[in-house]
């Protein structure tokens, strides 16, 4: 079909994604609970399904956008620097908090998967599921997991954080901006952090700190885990 051929062109795929994203932002303004990361995917998935365009074809253009995640990660240094002073007194305590969360993540993800009878490669794939995609892929590969499965788990964790994270924290009475940022950054990395950026500078800055340190901790803990496994 000609239409699906047109859609497979990188610039069209990028345009489709930008339009879906703009639509999702608009929807988010009307319904604050509708997370842009979820709403933004729906029109794209629908178009791809209806016109029988494969993800591989779409992603030829999509990967141009994914590349920019690298520079965007670097840009997180700016809110971290700008809010460095606010955090000066609590940096060590923030590190302890994030380390506690990261350990919980590794133990519970692998533990539950093992209890439910998942095969070893899947258990190992779940170890880095709370951290940012590039670190998670690396850790998964080194442990003997399956990187594609890890990516799916990472995105799922991120989407959960971006959609219901703040609500759940509110329900258990966590109101401190720094605690919210730490919890979202540790549990849902960049996707969670991205969802905070428009709401609160402090939350997103702490979330960036948490995301970066959770990634480094998880990589280090996994390196020890690897020695233990092999």
């Amino acid at each position: 079909m000609i239409l699906s051929r047109v859609l497979a062109h990188p610039s069209i795929a990028v345009a489709l994604t930008v339009i879906s994203y703009a639509f999702a932002q608009r929807v988010h303004r009307w319904f604050p609970w509708a997370a842009p990361i979820v709403i933004g995917c729906l029109p794209i998935v629908t178009v791809l399904r209806v016109l029988h365009v494969s993800y591989t074809d779409y992603n030829r253009g999509g990967s141009y956008l994914t590349w920019w995640l690298g520079p965007a990660t670097v840009a997180l240094a700016v809110p971290m620097y700008r809010n460095g002073l606010t955090l000066r007194g609590v940096r060590l305590r923030l590190a302890v908090t994030v380390m506690g969360g990261s350990l919980t993540g590794i133990l519970t993800a692998a533990g539950v998967a093992k209890l439910l009878g998942a095969p070893l490669p899947i258990v190992l794939s779940s170890v880095p599921k709370s951290v940012t995609t590039p670190i998670a892929i690396e850790v998964s590969r080194q442990l003997g997991g399956i990187p594609q499965i890890t990516i799916a788990m990472v995105i799922l964790s991120g989407v959960l954080g971006a959609t219901i994270g703040k609500l759940l924290l509110m329900l258990v009475g966590v109101k401190d901006d720094r605690a919210i940022g730490a919890a979202i950054g540790t549990s849902s990395h960049g996707i969670g952090t991205a969802s905070l950026i428009r709401d609160s500078e402090i939350q997103s800055a702490v979330s960036s700190w948490a995301m970066a340190s959770a990634g480094v901790f998880t990589a280090v803990i996994s390196a020890f885990l690897r020695l233990f496994l092999h």
């Binding site: 990361i37 999509g62 956008l65 994914t66 995640l69 991120g158 991205a194």
Partner: peptide, 9 residues
């Protein structure tokens, strides 16, 4: 940044 995560998702 959310836009950049859409293709992966």
């Amino acid at each position: 940044m959310v836009l950049l995560f859409i293709p992966l998702t």
